[in-house]
């Protein structure tokens, strides 16, 4: 029995919103912010796979494959930036990152 696509879309919407609110509300440290971005990417992946199953077309799954590699690269570079920031300042609290005075 197939799961209706509308439920999967709602699930992905909820995960996307949780990730977005996590980016805004997170005042603890930068790593949780990167995790929120991973949640947003995951919701996009759920959308791709459910549409790929709905239209019986494999190309959605191929784009999920690319999406995974891009998110892995992003996590690696982001964590490297966090590590050197911690070395410089001794803290990765979001409110301490104000060097650029933005």
């Amino acid at each position: 029995m197939e799961i209706p696509i509308i439920y999967q879309l709602y699930l992905s919407i909820i995960i996307f919103t949780i990730g977005l609110i996590g980016v805004f509300l997170n005042r603890k440290n930068l790593i949780v912010l990167l995790m929120s971005i991973e949640l947003i990417l995951l919701s996009a992946n759920i959308n791709f796979v459910s549409f790929s199953n709905y239209y019986k077309n494999i190309i959605g799954q191929i784009f999920v494959f690319f999406n995974l590699s891009i998110s892995a690269a992003e996590a690696a570079v982001g964590l490297a930036i966090i590590v050197i920031f911690f070395r410089k300042k001794g803290s990765i609290h979001v409110d301490d990152i104000n060097t650029l005075k933005g």
């Binding site: 799961i3 999967q8 459910s50 799954q61 998110s71 892995a72």
Partner: peptide, 22 residues
């Protein structure tokens, strides 16, 4: 959703690499 390969890749790449890196 009939995406067996991606399910296994998600286990390996996300849990095995990215989450452990975090």
């Amino acid at each position: 959703s009939n995406a067996e390969f991606l399910a296994m890749i998600l286990l390996i790449v996300y849990i095995g690499a990215v989450a452990v890196l975090f």
